[in-house]
Nucleic acid binder design. Structure first.
Length: 256
DNA sequence: AACCTGGTCAACCGCGGGGCG
DNA sequence: ACGCCCCGCGGTTGACCAGGT
């Protein structure tokens, strides 16, 4: 699911999302939904109260200090996956808030993008991938995100890390002729875009993979785009979840 | 066994771009 | 036009681990 930038206009989380949560409520754990609702209603009240204009620097710093940092626990991962499954991988500040994680939106996004996203390959780079990185870096320089687009399943962070390691090696062994030969031979084999293998390298037996599957099945046929559209539409147009499932026009999937 | 070193990778930080009110 | 907010990017850091001495 891809949100366009314009989606940011639907930023009245508070009432809007409370409605959303009610709509999806039939499909997910009621306890979780109630918790989210409570949080959202509270945040909506706070916002409409004083609009909390321009927090002082001291306040901001205090908030930062309260935020958790460092490595993620499995529990945190599960919470994040669940929340992203519900609300999509946008609006990270919102996701961070409703997930109950004491993390910044930025931190949540990073964790998702670099580790938890279902499309990510874990493990060593294949020789083809290595060669492709070298080739694309020669062409584009440190445009890691751009390079990452040509390597499905690999993140810019991963490629960046790989390149740093690689460069160190190159510096140490000031590019011998034999290595350039193998590099060229490798380039010949390199395909323009490495295809994603269905199922990838994910360990389906893992807890997170199971959660991903279950949230995906919930979100299949229930994309956030549709939710937003319905929120914008007059309330009389809202369908129940069951009605929606029957609707044939509902064909989007969650993970794009 | 203890220490050192290099490699790997997850995570943080600062910054800039773009949308919105 | 301006400021705010969110997002994404690239650079950097630090923890952890394995292998060597």
């Amino acid at each position: 699911m891809i949100y366009k930038r314009g989606e940011a206009s639907k930023r009245n989380y508070g009432k809007l999302i409370v409605t959303t949560v009610e709509m999806v409520g039939k499909n997910v754990g009621l306890q979780f939904i109630e918790a989210v609702k409570a949080k959202l209603e509270l945040s909506y009240k706070q916002k409409s109260k004083g609009k909390q204009k321009n927090k002082s620097k001291v306040e901001v710093n205090n908030m930062r200090e309260e935020m958790r940092k460092g490595p993620w626990t499995e529990q945190e991962d599960l919470q994040l996956v669940r929340t992203v499954g519900l609300f999509g991988d946008r609006r990270w500040d919102f996701v961070a808030k409703v997930s109950g994680l004491n993390r910044t939106g930025k931190s949540c996004r990073l964790r998702w993008v670099n580790y938890l996203h279902p499309g990510i390959k874990h493990g060593r780079m294949s020789p083809q991938e290595e060669c492709l990185i070298i080739e694309l870096h020669a062409r584009w320089g440190n445009r890691w995100s751009r390079i990452a687009l040509r390597l499905p399943g690999r993140t810019d962070n991963e490629i960046k890390n790989y390149w740093r390691t690689h460069m160190r090696k190159m510096d140490m062994s000031t590019t011998s002729s034999s290595s350039s030969l193998t590099y060229q031979a490798c380039l010949l084999e390199t395909v323009p875009i490495i295809s994603i293998h269905e199922g990838g390298t994910h360990d389906d037996s893992s807890c997170i993979a199971r959660i991903l599957k279950s949230t995906q099945s919930v979100m299949d046929g229930f994309p956030m785009d549709q939710i937003w559209r319905e929120i914008e539409a007059p309330s009389s147009l809202l369908m129940s979840v069951d009605e929606r499932k029957d609707s044939s026009s509902f064909t989007c999937t969650t993970w794009d």
